[in-house]
Amino acid sequence: MKLSIQINEGPYQHQAADSAYQFAKAALAKGHEIFRVFFYHDGVNNATRLAVPPQDDRNITQQWTDLQKEHDLDLVVCIAAAQRRGLMDEDEAKRQGKDANNIAEGFRISGLGQLIEAGIESDHLVTFGA
């Protein structure tokens, strides 16, 4: 089946991102296709490359980056939610006149239409949130 995943909460604060990752890994191992993972609300914070979790803890952002590389996942961060919360890629930082960007490798920033498209194109949209 073709799946999409929506993640509504940030890393570490809430289990949603961990649950979504475990679910995605299991689905891929079973041979299912993941059309898109969409990060919304505080979920956009999963995409920062500036987080430094303790050595003995999981690195949630790195887990997504690795999974993206391995399976060519489409990890989309909602631009409207990202702008509010200070998540930006190089282009967006330039456009907004900011002195830095912080999007981790493997993620891309795009519009809310990408979530609707995921709902249209996928057999199932599975949401993780609070």
């Binding site: 509504n8 919304y40 409207a80 939610a81 239409g113 609707i116 498209e117 709902g119 249209i120």
Partner: peptide
Amino acid sequence: TIYALESLEVVLIGAAFEQ
């Protein structure tokens, strides 16, 4: 919490998809 506002933002964008 912000959920209500950001839900409304999805609805407005989603309306263009003619579902």
